[in-house]
Design a protein around this nucleic acid. Structure first.
Lengths: 164, 164
DNA sequence: TATTGTTATACTCTATAACTATA
DNA sequence: TATAGTTATAGAGTATAACAATA
């Protein structure tokens, strides 16, 4: 009975488990790297998002990232205090803050991009360029199948489930 | 300058980011599935570990999973209360508990294996069998490069970093 | 009254530090 | 005193609920 169940499993350590293991470790390493410029992964995600679509309100940005707007406040406070972003109050409807990167913020984003590129090279170090492209094709299809939004980190999403 | 930095990035959404995204989502889905039999991913990991190496003490098991022994107490309480495991006190040194799966625990582990197999099929649904094998080869090499212990979920590890 | 942004509260998770019982 | 297991304490992170300002 147990051997029978066992036989149904395709591999000792399946792709799904490997993906979870690797994903968690890659996230942890990215967190360490991005910590080197005094940011968290969440901060870096906001810089990317604001650069991609400047002028959004906090509510609109939260909707894009599929997270609660309350979560953004402290993160944006940090970035604003650092001079990386501006909250421009809309004169026509003074409840809205339009989010924009400053000059310094654009420079900081360049640093983030450099960190991300180094991270990318690190994680895929044992693969050849052809294998990286192969992997990218496979992963893109899985990401699509799982309904993942390109560029939106799942850490922003509102799940009930356990993190690991 | 910024365009120059951008050009260094190999792809819009690199493999590292995709791995993080997919890993987090896969973990979340597994958590939902395993919740269907009133367990968390952590509980299921303990069942696997105790089955793989029965008779370990709680300290020894914690060391294998690279986590604090205090973290295991409540999880083992749950499994014991459910009749899935036993803490057998060692008569020669009565400080040690030798951990063992019960008959019921073996049955529960079979259910966990079925859930894991369904999860595996779900995550890799869009791939052919040949592609799954290809992916497995690439992921195994990356996991090895990242120093991951086969079968040990990173969720048990003691990092300081952010979870996502 | 409805909406934007903010602050406050409560809850979960976990790391660390006491504590007990055995040796 | 040293170790295995347990319990208690404290901290981080976040989801939810209240709140103030504006429309």
């Amino acid at each position: 009975m147990r051997a029978n169940e066992k036989a149904r499993i395709p591999r000792r350590h399946g792709n799904a488990f490997l993906l979870t293991q690797i994903g968690a470790r890659a996230a942890q390493r990215y967190g360490e790297r991005i910590g080197g410029i005094e940011l968290t992964p969440a901060h870096s995600g906001l810089l990317f998002a604001i650069d991609r679509e400047p002028g959004l309100s906090q509510q609109a940005l939260a909707a894009k990232l599929d997270t609660a707007a309350t979560r953004l406040v402290a993160l944006l406070d940090d970035l604003e205090q650092r001079g990386a972003i501006e909250r421009r109050r809309n004169p026509e409807d003074r409840r809205h803050n339009a989010l924009h990167l400053t000059e310094a913020g654009a420079g900081l984003l360049d640093e983030v991009r450099a960190v991300a590129a180094a991270h990318e090279r690190d994680v895929t170090a044992p693969l050849t360029e052809a294998e990286r492209a192969q992997l990218h094709g496979l992963l893109t299809r899985i990401a699509d199948h799982l309904g993942l939004t390109p560029g939106v980190h799942p850490g922003y999403r509102n799940y009930g489930g356990d993190c690991p």
